[in-house]
Nucleic acid binder design. Sequence first.
DNA 1: ATGTGC
Length: 389
Amino acid sequence: MFRVIFEPDRGQRVPIRLWARHVGPDTIRQLQRLASQDYVVEFVAAMADAHVSEGVAVGSVFATEHTLVPAALGGDLGCGMSALRIDVDAFGLDRRTLEIVVSRLGRAIPTGDATHRGGGASRANLPEGLLETPLSTRSLEHTREALLGRHLGTLGGGNHFLELDRDADGGVWLLVHSGSRGLGGAIASHHARAAEERNAHGLAGMDIRESAGAAYWQDLEWAIRFARENRRALATRALEILSDVLHREVTAADTIDVHHNFVAREEWFGRPLFVHRKGAIAAPRGDRALIPGSMGTASYVAFGLANADSFGSCSHGAGRVMTRTEARRTIRPKAFAESMRRVVYPDALARRLVEEAPCVYRDIREVLDDQEDLLVRTIRLEPLAVLKG
DNA sequence: ATGTGC
């Protein structure tokens, strides 16, 4: 359930609904700033994993009638998660096999800044139409021409990852967290600049009925599509490697894919709205949602409840509780290894991986408890092996 | 998040 903050004397126009039990003062300030913009309607919702970010807090959901807000989405347009139920039995995956899989994935899939050294997909097998759909400027089309082949099929850095998980029945799942890479970033920054030029204040909006707003919508839709194709390319590559290691063709029986950095046209309270979600997912009724924990703790498949209280949204993950700097300073290598003892990961990267240690995230069960009115958990996924970006 | 950016 949520609690409400509404202080109109501080300029707030709509109430803030908070699903998180712990929220820092700087996160509240960001939510209040958002709730003071003239384009927001109904309310601003902060999901159970809300935390401070650049401009707008991660975990923010808000809606407008005809305004798009580039600065409210961040750079990684269309970032999200895929989960593929694959036809592999967890009992057949011993630790040694998982180590081979992780090492092969690490060599085959460009992670972090490896994109700069030449990347993922070859030009020949780009998905249909991805290069042909127009973008709003020649400059962006040039950037796409140069980067598309390089960026498709690359993982990226930070909290992006590939993971193998098992469910309670011994079924194995492939999880992918990635987005629209540098190309999405180029689109995002182009429109953030355009919005600022037209409107001096911080969280500048663009009207969809004007050309600049319509251009952003067109490019945003493309970036979101590209991000999904990128996750698909990563998953395809991972399945090829699994097939190779297991000496048989591994296929996906079932795929879930959710964005958590996007704008969607949806109808709420009897009117069409542009729902902005930054680090939040849509949880439509009966449809499956996907909520990762951390690389050492469980992730969950859930059913959305389409609760109008949050514009039918829920949290996109567990939410950080510790900064990367803090993690590097305070987490001892031994404690890190202990918290990851059940999961296979590239040992050589342990020093860098502490930034993503299980203890830098909130307990996913608590985060799910905080939003029981938004979703129903159905499948618990235990991590077996992880490759971080 | 980011071929990070003045």
